[in-house]
Amino acid sequence: MAEMLGTRDVYGDTLAELGQAYPQIVVLDADLSSSTKTGVFGKAFPDRFFNMGVCEQSLVDTACGFALAGKLPFVSTFAIFTMRAWEQIRQCVAIQNLNVKIVASHGGVTVGEDGASAQAIEDVALMRVLPRMSVIVPADGIETRAVIRALVEHVGPTYVRVARAKFPVILPKDYVFRLGRGVVLHEGGDATVVAMGVMVSRALEAARLLKEEGLSVRVINMSTVKPIDEELLHRAALETGGVVTAEEHSVIGGLGGAVAELLAERCPVPMRRIGMQDRFGTSGDAESLLAHFGLTAEAIAEAVRDVVKRKAHPR
C-alpha cells in the first residue's frame, strides 16, 4: 500500500515554509482556511493572512489589489467557490495579467460526502478557457510541494487544484516540476494514457494490469493542463497511435477536451476520455464515488483495450 498524502495538507505546509523566505507572500481565504490549510500560514504569519469571510468575489479582487501593489497573493477557497468568482478571475486577474496564485482545494468528486453542490467538476474547463491563465492539477503530495515552490518564482495568473482526499504518493522525492511539461511515468508503445490529479495513480495501475495482458502503455502525468505540453502529446499520439485521457473532472472542456482539441488538429488517433460523463456528483465516500463514476484503473484499462482495437480496425 502506497503512502497517502493530502495535497491540501502539503499546500498549507509548503506555503508556511515559504513565508519566511518570501516576505511578499500574502494569503487570502474565504472562511475555509481550516479546510484549505491556509490556516497553517495564517498561524505562522498572522499579519500577512487575510480571512475575507464568505465573500468569494471580493476575495479574488482584493488579491488583485495586493498583486497591483507588488505582493504575491495566494488565494484559496474550495474549487466550487472559485467558479463563483469566475468573472473576477476573468476581469481582474486575467485581463490585468496579475500575479495572483489561486490554489483551490476540494476539487473533483473525491470531496465525497458533501455531495454535488461541493464537488467541482467544471473548474479546470472554466479556468482553461481564460487567456493568460495557467492551470495545474498535481498528481500527489510530492508534486503539490514542487508546484507551490515553483509558483513563487513564476509570474502570471495561475490556478492550482488540490483535493480534500488523501492521494497515494506515486512520485519520487526528487521529482522536478516544470510548468507546461508533462512527464512520462511509465513507458509503453501500444497506447498512451494522459492523466491528471488522482487519476495518474489509477493510470499507472491500469498500465500494470494491461502489462499482464501483454499491452505496453505509456502513462503521462499531465499536471499542467494549460499550457499543455503539445510536443509530448504529439509524439505520444504518433508513436503509440491511441490515447486515453483520465481526469476527476467533466470530460467536457477539461484534460480530455484539451487533448482532443490538440490531437484533432495535429495527429488524430483513436481516443477515449475517462472522467465525469456530463453529469453531477453525489454523496458518498471518495473511493465509492470514484468507482461509481467509472474513475478507476479498470475503466482506464478497458478504454485502452478499446483504442488498441480501433487502431487495428478503424470504424
Binding site: V26, F50, T62, C64, G65, A69, C92
Partner: peptide, 23 residues
C-alpha cells in the same frame, strides 16, 4: 490604475492595495 468596465470590482481592489500599503 485598474482595468474596469464590469461594475463592482474597484473597491475590493482598493482594499488589497490599501492593506498592502499598510504592510
Amino acid at each position: 490604475e485598474i482595468s474596469a468596465g464590469s461594475l463592482g470590482h474597484g473597491l475590493a481592489m482598493a482594499n488589497g492595495m490599501a492593506l498592502a500599503a499598510r504592510l
